[in-house]
Design a protein around this nucleic acid. Structure first.
Lengths: 337, 337
DNA sequence: GTGAAAGCGCTAACAG
DNA sequence: CTGTTAGCGCTTTCAC
């Protein structure tokens, strides 16, 4: 199917000059006469010549491609990040290759292989929930290919990270609930081996303690999906243990909880306030609209790409962890101050 | 930064044999002795040799990369499609490069250039709402690079398409509203120059006509976002023109409408039924949950990739339009039969 | 001012 | 069974 794309040789042949002259003319080399340049450029334009990026890559050992590994593209937060990466990469004439691990560590390992084989210039990664062995990332770094982690990072690997201050954000969200009159708080949390979710949990816990609320582990309940959020509310309702303030590890879980609360005709925020995390697309859609933490995925992706490309092009070796600001987005699922 | 990745030459030198022998040993060429194969493979393993995909591409004139152009990655439907593409591509050892046009025709043109320069083996595209001139796509096809369009296709270009039967789906959704007792229907529609949205509109219109409902153009109202959906409901409410059945061009618009209706304390579905389109993540989250049309983005992406890769590898020239089945997903925003 | 030659990593045709 | 050679498209010395 693939017919012949125009090459430098074709142009050279037609013009009766050598390939190297064409190459130089195309990039305005000072040695080349104005005449020749003009002829070459016109013909190139006419034939729709496009440099073969692959040949350039082979030559320069730079692919101008950034490899991305995320658990799921479909996840709103991750697609936001990807969008941010794409934006900065585009500005710098880099392409992005996207792979998803589907939360499967095995797949993540094979993704690394694939990207390495594709000779990406660097990678931007958010690991699966269950990745415990980080050797595949160490291998990548071993080849000299830089990695920037975002959101879900890997402890003990010396490389750049872009994160938000999950602890602080959770602390502030919890404190907001307290300030608006909640006295009986609960947290729906994610897996403990993920730093981001455990940090959110500690932020919640510490906010309680600092405000002289009794704290015990029963106030932390594992639930981190729409369905689990729903189920847990029904369960708590049955046991007569519903709180008057709920802070969830993410928006989806909050949405699930609210869906159940609505069905139970429990008034939000009058009887129970709900606070989410992420500020995804759904937070505007729930009824009532959801108060949440702005996580700014787009900026996170943009920043990660910025750090990575800088590292690729300037070959710096300093390792930095960038902490992006968050803010509380107050909507109608919480009472007002 | 980039240190040396192991090459075939390195292995050859260490083992004191030629590069071609190594190459052949690695791919189990029958000519090579068992001994040699063993030595080569062991060393390759030990040194973590990975074939240089770029060199292979240059050689074979095949990059094993599929280029994707979508209006927005963040859009749930598109990310679902991408996910489907990624899945099939992964099975066939293809990578995907993703670009977004941001609904900007200029950007779309430059995306085509970029991907062409990256020598992708084929493209999967959903155009912007405003693309009117399709020459850039014709150029791509002119280079022998196949394109498969999905969802938003380009009229008058002879290439493969993967779509759903928007007309039929809209017809069925509307008829469902009628069967469940709605007598006063309205449609919130998208831009007219998009075939998919105008087809949804005609499906709605024809369902009314076939069921002997009066039809006039006032029953079609332009609104295709959360905000517009909201606004329009408030406007209609003020003018006392609210329908008892609403079919929207997509889920977001439906969600906006429902958000407004909830605020106005208008009961869904008792006073007004709402029917969406897409079955995105949000359709489970709205209150009540949203009846909608399953558009199956994942399958659409998977199918598009299947058609494209088949075309790439088998160099077939037949052009086909694949119409994927849809189905109504009945939840709680509509009355039951 | 321009051309010839070498080489990026790999494969395949051609020799032995 | 294995080595040599050439070439994919391009850039970059080194000549002239």
């Amino acid at each position: 199917m693939k017919s012949h794309q125009v090459t430098i040789k074709d142009i050279a042949k037609i013009l009766g000059i050598s390939a190297s002259t064409v190459s130089r003319a195309l990039k305005d080399h000072p040695d080349i006469s104005f005449e020749t340049k003009k002829k070459v450029k016109e013909l190139a334009e006419e034939l729709k010549y496009k440099p073969n990026a692959i040949a350039l890559s082979l030559q320069s050992n730079k692919s101008h491609i950034i490899g991305i590994i995320v658990p799921q593209i479909v996840h709103h937060f991750f697609s936001t990040v990807i969008s941010g990466i794409e934006e900065y990469a585009g500005e710098k004439a880099y392409n992005i290759i996207i792979t998803q691990s589907n939360e499967n560590p095995e797949k993540e390992i094979s993704n690394c292989r694939t990207l390495l084989s594709g000779r990406v210039d660097g990678m931007i990664v958010s690991r699966t929930k269950d990745t415990e062995n980080f050797d595949h990332f160490r291998n990548v770094l071993g080849t000299g290919t830089p990695i920037v982690f975002f959101d879900r990072t890997c402890h003990g690997i010396k490389t750049d990270k872009v994160v938000i201050d999950d602890y602080k954000a959770a602390y502030e969200a919890t404190e907001y609930l307290i300030k608006t009159g909640c006295r009986n708080l609960l947290h729906f949390s994610g897996p403990e081996n993920l730093k981001i979710t455990s940090k959110r949990m500690w932020g919640f816990a510490d906010a309680l303690k600092k405000n002289h609320f009794p704290f015990n582990e029963d106030l932390i309940i594992k639930a981190d999906s729409f369905e689990e959020g729903r189920k847990m509310i029904f369960k708590l309702h049955k046991e007569n243990k519903l709180p008057d303030g709920l802070f969830t590890v993410n928006d989806m879980t909050a949405a699930g909880a609210m869906s159940a609360l609505n069905e139970l005709k429990i008034k939000i925020p009058e009887e129970i306030s709900v606070f989410g995390f992420t500020n995804g697309a759904i937070s505007k859609i729930t009824s009532p609209s959801l108060s949440t933490v702005e996580q700014n995925g787009h900026l996170m992706g943009y920043t990660a790409a910025e750090i990575l490309i800088n590292k690729i092009e300037n070959e710096t070796h300093e390792v930095l962890t960038k902490i992006l600001p968050t803010k509380l987005i107050i909507r109608n699922s919480t009472r007002h101050l």
